[in-house]
Simulated scan of single mutants.
Amino acid sequence: MSKTYNWAILGCGKIARKFATDLKLCPNARLYAAASRSLESAQSFASELGFEKAYGSYEEMVNDPEVDVVYIATPHSHHLEHALLCLNHQKAVLCEKAFAINSKEVGLMIEAARRNKTFLMEAFWTRFQPSFLKVLEIIHSGELGALKMVHSDFAFNAEYNPEKRLYNVDLGGGSLLDIGIYPIFMSLMALGKPSEIKTMARFCPTGAEESIMMSFSYPGGEIASLVSSFASYSSTQTEFSFENGFVRLNRRFYTPTSLTYWKNWEEEKVITFEKGAGFGYELEAAHVMECLDAGKTESDWMPLNFSSDLMEIMDWVRKDAGIVFPKHD
């Protein structure tokens, strides 16, 4: 029987609020502590969502011996600092994506996790959605033949505000780390690491990349066409093209969604997946606790070498596109 784990939230923003709301759906999760740079912010978050404690500094939180696992929800630019703080205090960590700013930072996080024999996982919630698991099942079954192409897009029209995180290069701003990571994730899960990458990017006045098109090619001749943008809306779908058909994760492919399946001139089938009570974050939280129950320091479903490969590809994309984060590069 699973033990009850005391969860702490590090960073009390929008994504943390969604995650904490879903955490309530896990019977073995105790909403224990909320931590922010501001005690007032932490207290407000804790009061709203039902956490028992509030801390006005992250250092206070990690020094609480009752904290078992920490969800890090700060900007990408601070993930290294906050992950190291938690790991060096032997607190299990679920760190929001992108894992960090670059491969060097990811390497330091992984090194700290292994040195401290402490659990670390990138919070890639899509990996645990039933719709995505069905796609992986179809790919591995070979029922549609060999997978030849992946097309994935993620775009929305974000108000341009140079002060906000999305457009602030000091905070890892730009569409790539924020939403471009999803199409790249899809291609990496389906096709592995590419052998060649070509990009085309559009930049805004702050120096942040606003839109990017990415073309990946693979040793076996497969290709991937990937797009992310803050300039316009897109269908936000991912299509997997096989020798004998296709599978499409429909709109909002990164969440619990529907799937369109077509094979050999047969009629298209739409497979729907029942939406749970939450947003979908409870699935990754439950997985983390299953790993902790088993005494694991990393996930078999979202292993650290996968997160390392994912960031390595994004570094390659950034180099080709000329995307620079001055405080980190």
Score class of each variant (00 low, 15 high):
residue 3 K to S: 11
residue 8 A to C: 01
residue 9 I to V: 14
residue 10 L to T: 07
residue 12 C to A: 06
residue 14 K to L: 12
residue 16 A to I: 02
residue 17 R to F: 14
residue 20 A to T: 10
residue 26 C to G: 02
residue 33 A to W: 04
residue 34 A to Q: 04
residue 37 R to H: 10
residue 39 L to C: 01
residue 43 Q to W: 02
residue 45 F to I: 04
residue 45 F to H: 05
residue 47 S to T: 11
residue 50 G to V: 08
residue 51 F to G: 05
residue 53 K to G: 09
residue 58 Y to V: 10
residue 64 D to Y: 07
residue 66 E to W: 05
residue 69 V to L: 09
residue 72 I to E: 03
residue 74 T to P: 02
residue 74 T to W: 02
residue 74 T to Q: 00
residue 74 T to I: 04
residue 75 P to G: 07
residue 76 H to W: 04
residue 76 H to F: 07
residue 76 H to R: 13
residue 79 H to M: 01
residue 79 H to T: 01
residue 80 L to T: 08
residue 81 E to D: 12
residue 83 A to S: 11
residue 89 H to S: 05
residue 93 V to N: 00
residue 94 L to Y: 07
residue 96 E to Q: 14
residue 96 E to C: 09
residue 96 E to K: 12
residue 99 F to P: 03
residue 101 I to L: 15
residue 103 S to M: 07
residue 103 S to E: 10
residue 107 G to W: 03
residue 116 N to Y: 01
residue 117 K to R: 09
residue 119 F to Y: 15
residue 119 F to V: 05
residue 120 L to W: 04
residue 122 E to M: 05
residue 122 E to I: 00
residue 128 F to N: 00
residue 130 P to D: 06
residue 134 K to H: 08
residue 135 V to K: 02
residue 138 I to S: 02
residue 139 I to V: 15
residue 140 H to W: 07
residue 140 H to P: 01
residue 142 G to P: 00
residue 144 L to Q: 12
residue 144 L to G: 08
residue 151 H to M: 14
residue 154 F to Y: 14
residue 154 F to W: 11
residue 159 E to I: 13
residue 161 N to C: 11
residue 162 P to C: 03
residue 165 R to V: 13
residue 170 D to P: 00
residue 172 G to N: 06
residue 172 G to L: 04
residue 174 G to L: 06
residue 175 S to K: 03
residue 190 A to T: 02
residue 195 S to F: 03
residue 196 E to L: 10
residue 196 E to M: 13
residue 199 T to S: 10
residue 199 T to E: 13
residue 201 A to Y: 11
residue 201 A to P: 04
residue 204 C to M: 09
residue 217 S to C: 05
residue 219 P to E: 14
residue 226 L to Q: 04
residue 226 L to W: 06
residue 229 S to W: 06
residue 230 F to M: 11
residue 231 A to Y: 09
residue 235 S to L: 11
residue 244 N to Y: 12
residue 245 G to K: 10
residue 247 V to S: 06
residue 248 R to L: 05
residue 252 R to H: 09
residue 254 Y to Q: 13
residue 258 S to Y: 00
residue 262 W to T: 14
residue 265 W to V: 07
residue 265 W to S: 13
residue 266 E to G: 11
residue 269 K to Q: 15
residue 274 E to H: 09
residue 281 Y to E: 10
residue 284 E to P: 04
residue 284 E to H: 12
residue 288 V to F: 01
residue 294 A to P: 03
residue 296 K to L: 12
residue 297 T to I: 15
residue 297 T to Q: 06
residue 298 E to P: 04
residue 299 S to D: 08
residue 301 W to H: 12
residue 302 M to G: 06
residue 312 E to Q: 15
residue 314 M to V: 02
residue 314 M to T: 08
residue 316 W to D: 09
residue 316 W to H: 13
residue 318 R to G: 14
residue 319 K to I: 10
residue 319 K to M: 10
residue 322 G to L: 08
residue 324 V to H: 12
residue 326 P to I: 07
residue 328 H to K: 02
